[in-house]
Design a protein around this nucleic acid. Structure first.
Lengths: 336, 336
DNA sequence: TTGTAGGCGTTATCAT
DNA sequence: ATGATAACGCCTACAA
């Protein structure tokens, strides 16, 4: 393992016959360095291909310039787009992001956070899959700023999310306006706050328009396409069948569409379908899917910026940011 | 910023009235510690919620337990799945992954690698978007192990990839067997090795079956759906139109399908379409898309394992792993 | 089996 | 404007 030794400020100092502190200052362009010395140092650093050792820097100033991201998955449009936003913002500010995937398992999420080396992370961005937030509070108690995005826990802390309530309200309202009468909702698992918000948006649209709420038209299950398919089949067994389905996300909406296709029910004309997210697939599937677009990229950027604000200003008060979604009307809610 | 001070081994040592080195040894269960002492230390560590400072550990042993991942995007099925595999493997072995997104821009990729703090990364996994690999060699020269996955550069180094050549060969062969005669290929940009491999698989299937190769049936462009759509429209302008299209990836295949639908050409019956990747969308779109499944998750796991092998054994000789794909036949290549 | 001391690369404090 | 020196938290000889 003959390794080209990495260059340190000591090497630069030796070659230039100056002290390491001067080199250090020059490199961080502190105010009190001779411009000449500084340019000499910079030149030598470039020549030697010097790269700062963030480990050492972190050790001495207690900052690592690393941000941890904890989330359930990365293999879907929403999360991968959020991460892209986070990464871009972090990179621009000289921060690295360290990725942790919980696989939507609360146990795993807890494991991850417990094993976390707090000293190697300046802050954490998390979309939690846990009901309880004790493991997160533990971390926050150690003074590590935490910002929640998307799936925000039941804990006092900064949060960035889309406007699930209004999005769901708009989606339901759209179905009502299209003339659908029996509108069902296939929701996510109970306990998730964003699931509740979407459910409430749905319910309130009903109330405002004098529609009777039917508990049998509301089904809670997982987030997968298969769940959506199963839920829909179940709805179609009811004596009073729904003529429209609002799904908690696009995957379930697509599952619903598959179930409808199986029974040769015309999507749109007979049964309307609305999703949530605006996954690219929603404009590719046939019929195209009406959905509520989530500002995934912005959520990533803004969560990261908010975390950096905590980091840089020392701000302790939690802050909440809610970004509006946008209803995108497509074929799956066209009656004719 | 009143912060609950993080616990260090000093704290444990002080509380237990022993030395830090003993604590250090106990924590890393070295061979030469009294079991009693060890259990006492472990207990105290748990009680105090001690978390090791990887920065410090890294500084002193020259290892960081961080692995860098550099890739063009994360917002597609293939890459997000690869990352999931990497993350899982890395996590199992106590490594963190740090994500860098090049946005498919060579300049950005070079920037990223140049700015990289080599001392904060034990190794790098990269899917490069650059033709030249000098910026990568620079890093390898510093003794940082590099493993390429998917888009492997023109550089001597460990590589993990799917069998693009055979996958393309099988895909083309399938089209031939289905009776298509005029098979076009909408390829990726020139210069990318995996694009070349897929092109060669296509060409060789032609040769083996005595099909004449026509340059006008091979179009190079970007990887997006729009490119696929445009390429296909272009193909349909030819005097001798293709009756089948093999696309370099699913996105372009879907673009091709959209272009065909626009012209009311029956997909499958009139013009067959095959993609590459097996993005979940390929089984949801209508008609469903015949494609070559890439072992994305395995590629992630194996690249990471290979990198860890370099890290742990000091192995310097590059190693290449090629994983087979699998042809998945669906509706888009059914003639009847 | 345990403790002491020095060092990893950098920054910060205090002199000069 | 620059230099010496002591941290930062941990590891690892070496000594006891």
């Amino acid at each position: 393992m003959s390794i080209a030794q990495l260059i340190t400020i000591k090497d630069i100092a030796r070659e230039l016959n100056i002290s390491v502190s001067t080199v250090s200052r020059a490199l961080r362009d502190a105010y009190d360095v001779n411009p000449d010395t500084k340019s000499k140092v910079l030149k030598k650093a470039a020549e030697l291909q010097y790269r700062p050792n963030y480990n050492a820097r972190g050790l001495s100033q207690g900052k690592t310039h690393n941000i941890g991201i904890v989330l359930p998955f990365i293999t879907n449009y929403y999360f991968s787009t959020v991460i892209t936003g986070i990464q871009k913002t972090a990179y621009m500010h000289g921060y690295n992001i360290i990725l942790f995937v919980s696989d939507d398992s609360p146990d795993r999420e807890i494991d991850i956070l417990r094993a976390l080396s707090l000293s190697s992370l300046d802050g954490i961005l998390i979309s939690t899959c846990c009901d309880s937030a004790e493991h997160i509070r533990e971390i926050a108690d150690h003074g590590i700023p935490v910002v929640f995005f998307d799936r925000t826990g039941n804990i006092n802390g900064s949060k960035v999310m889309q406007d699930d309530y209004n999005g769901a309200y708009e989606a339901t309202l759209h179905l009502i306006r299209q003339g659908y009468k029996n509108i069902a909702h296939i929701a996510g698992p109970k306990g998730q706050r964003f699931t509740e918000n979407r459910l409430n948006g749905y319910k309130d649209a009903f109330k405002v328009h004098g529609f009777p709420l039917r508990e049998e038209w509301i089904i809670h299950s997982g987030f997968s396409q298969e769940c959506g398919q199963r839920d829909t089949s179940q709805l179609l067994e009811l004596s009073e069948k729904p003529d429209a389905i609002f799904a908690v996300n696009d995957r379930k909406a697509i599952g619903a569409m598959l179930a409808l296709k199986e029974k040769n029910i015309a999507i749109g004309r007979e049964v309307g379908v609305v999703g949530f997210t605006n996954d690219p697939i929603s404009s590719l599937i046939s019929p195209t899917l009406t959905t509520v677009a989530e500002p995934a990229f912005e959520i990533g950027c803004i969560s990261c910026e908010l975390l950096l604000k905590h980091l840089h200003t020392g701000m302790k008060e939690p802050q909440e940011v809610i970004l509006p979604g946008e209803l995108i009307v497509r074929e799956s809610t066209q009656r004719s």
